[in-house]
Nucleic acid binder design. Structure first.
Lengths: 187, 187
DNA sequence: TTATTAAACTAATGGCATTAGTTTTTAGGT
DNA sequence: ACCTAAAAACTAATGCCATTAGTTTAATAA
């Protein structure tokens, strides 16, 4: 009835984030989103190109958000402590915002500029923190891959299976990171 | 035209695996599968309950397949060597059969008995290999979580981003595992 | 030879994304 | 105050997909 501008891209993305966190990315449909925003599905197209476009927006918001959390908790801390804090923040993010975390895993990954750039910034953040170990470039890359794998692995396996065993996940993460850095030091 | 029994569940699953490995799980649709098998979509329902049912079949086949690979390459090897072999097999599987690997990540995970059981067997396999370190139960669980996370993380991040950096992934995996076990030994 | 049944089929339904074309309101210029 | 243009909502329609209902056909077993 009313073409009064009530929506905008931001409101849309915010509503989509709620849907994602509640029901996973598969719950993010044009129909569900329209219902939540009390408009008809075609109205959404005044603000986004397509569902795929929306997913890319979500991915961008999500990865930037995640990166900002990581950077924030790392600030001012010494390397090992910073990486520990980053790791906890990473897992906490995936736990608190499962839909957003899922959004970061979008398939058309490195074709989305912001996603790629933010991924690079994550690598850079780790690189700076690992600098205290005076490793050569190649070794540093290996370790960054290792750390990112541990974080993503923990985040995924927690969401999927809860690891099936009732032992606190942060305790495991702490232990695993301790083990890993012990391995670096005594390389 | 012909109600001659031409299909069965196995043929269906095999065709679905091909679709998945070629175009990802999103390419596994009833229509695409019917086309590949040269039947009409409703005919498929004589062999599977639904698309969700098919996805669960794929997940089961995939995780069993993956586990069998892991067990096979571990057989007869000493612990560290076995875990190295398992890791390579894991990454190779995810690389060679990306659709199958994606299938293992099904959401209704621990509600599918076979998937849960096979997951438990993986844990058990690692447990036996880690026995040589004489760790207590809790520590062992931590390390198993760590190793699984590394493997899943490597598999995922390779598929998604290729890590963005042109350094051989198996070399990184080898290095990361070496670092991790170095950390265990000198715990 | 006939009856049963498995497994194919056609036809139809309903959900979803998307497009085309229409209407309504707001905002800015006269 | 009025008119025009554009933004943003709407309705209607299309096409794809999963799924169900009901029908047909051919192989098997009595």
């Amino acid at each position: 009835m009313s073409p009064i501008p009530g929506l905008n891209k931001q409101k849309l993305v915010e509503a989509a984030i709620e849907l994602a966190n509640q029901g996973g990315m598969e719950a993010v449909t044009m129909h569900a989103l329209a219902k939540k925003l009390e408009v008809r599905p075609p109205s959404l197209y005044n603000h986004i190109k397509s569902l795929e476009d929306l997913r890319q927006q979500l991915a961008s918001v999500a990865i930037i958000d995640l990166y900002n959390n990581m950077e924030k908790v790392a600030k001012g801390k010494e390397a090992l402590e910073a990486i520990s804090a980053i790791s906890k923040a990473y897992i906490a993010f995936a736990h608190k915002y499962p839909g957003l975390y899922e959004a970061t895993l979008i398939k058309s990954d490195n074709s989305i500029l912001v996603v790629k750039e933010t991924g690079d910034k994550m690598v850079q953040l780790f690189k700076e923190l690992l600098a205290v170990y005076h490793l050569d470039e190649k070794e540093t890359i290996h370790h960054i891959r290792g750390l990112r794998s541990i974080l993503h692995g923990f985040a995924t396996l927690e969401q999927k299976t809860g690891f099936g065993i009732p032992i606190n996940i942060n305790e495991s993460l702490e232990y695993v990171l301790h083990t890993y850095f012990n391995g670096i030091k005594k390389g």
